[in-house]
Simulated assay, not measured.
Amino acid sequence: MIRLSIPLRQALSRLSLPVLIALAFGTMLLGKADALLAERARMVLADALAPIWATLQQPVASVRGAVQEAEFLLNLRAENAQLREENERLRRWQATALALEAENVVLQRQLRFVPEAAPAFQTVRVVADGGGIYARAVLLGIRPNHGVRKGQIALDERGLVGRVTEVGLRSARVLLATDMNSRIPVVLEGSRARAMMVGTNGARPRLQHWPEGSAPEDGERIVTSAEAGAFPAGLPVGIVRRSEGGAPEVELFARLDRLDVVRLFDYGLGGILPPEAVARPEPRPRR
């Protein structure tokens, strides 16, 4: 093996940088002088390296696939453990529900409980804005011998819409829950406190007259109360939302701005209060 002396090696190292720079400039000049020749040289180099790259990519792809498979198995194991935990929790809830159902049956037998019959209803199409003495009402098109009467409850597929206040031969008017004449007794589901939902002619009615110490909480569900016999208990109404001033309002479940059809339910309420006590007409404000 030939060993170069230290001065010779230093001289070669000093010459290597200028030589490389000269080769680079020569390649650039060659490429500018003959672009076709440079392109052919690049393609020859690419053709020579392509099989090598293809060969090297196979083990890399295999390693990548193995890593992804391992990650998938780890995620699958974690998901399986989570599903087992949820399944166990659901089994406990099922056992609790079955126990409560059995207890409910026993209590109903002891109290000689008579279940309420399912209310009769009919589906009716909304034909127009009701107008008349109410600011927020809709007019329904009904057929002759319809069986619609004052006081029936109107609902859409989401929740409470309002109550029938006027009935004609081929039409009926429903006072919406947002009208300023609307007064609906409700229950706060969280605290079970009673309150009164009052229409404002806006999109959200207000809540009033709740018991002291049971202020409505934001996000709390609202259902109807059977107090005064005007409405059945438990009909879905909406959710409590706070206004900018902090007043509790109700975001209704029903889409009153998109009413095409409503269902009129006859709950057979004799009604301790007449409809006029819950919907007392007031002069319609000018728009």
Rank of each mutant, 00 (worst) to 15 (best):
G238L: 07
P185A: 06
I222W: 00
S182L: 10
A233L: 07
S214D: 13
R242G: 13
R258I: 14
V187E: 06
R263M: 08
G268F: 08
G268P: 08
N201G: 08
P248M: 08
V261P: 14
T200A: 08
E251N: 12
L207A: 11
A228E: 14
S214M: 15
G245K: 03
R204W: 12
G234S: 09
P236Y: 08
G199T: 01
D266H: 01
E189K: 03
G199W: 00
P248K: 07
P205F: 02
P211G: 12
L269E: 10
R241L: 10
T224R: 06
G234W: 03
V237K: 02
P185K: 03
A247N: 15
T224N: 09
E227N: 10
A215L: 07
T224I: 04
G268A: 01
P205R: 12
F253Q: 06
D218E: 15
G238C: 07
I184V: 15
E244M: 14
V187F: 11
I239P: 03
L235V: 05
V223R: 01
G245E: 12
S214H: 12
N201K: 01
V262I: 11
V187K: 02
L188I: 13
P232Q: 09
P232S: 11
R255Q: 08
L256G: 13
G234E: 09
H209G: 05
G246S: 04
V198Q: 00
S191H: 05
Q208C: 15
A254T: 02
E212N: 12
I222R: 02
P185N: 05
G190D: 04
E244F: 02
D218Y: 06
Y267K: 00
T224K: 02
G234V: 02
G213D: 10
A195P: 00
L264N: 05
V186E: 02
A193I: 11
R192Q: 06
R194K: 15
P216L: 06
V250L: 00
V198M: 07
S243P: 02
R206H: 12
G246F: 11
R204E: 12
A228N: 13
V186S: 05
V261A: 15
V250K: 05
G202M: 10
D260T: 14
A230Q: 14
A247H: 15
G190C: 11
V237F: 11
E189A: 06
W210K: 04
P216K: 01
P232E: 03
D260E: 15
P232A: 14
F253Y: 04
E220W: 03
I184T: 12
F265E: 08
T200C: 00
G246P: 02
G199H: 07
V262C: 08
G202D: 14
D218F: 06
L256R: 05
W210L: 00
F231M: 07
G245C: 05
I222V: 12
L207W: 07
G190V: 09
M197G: 09
A228S: 15
E189I: 02
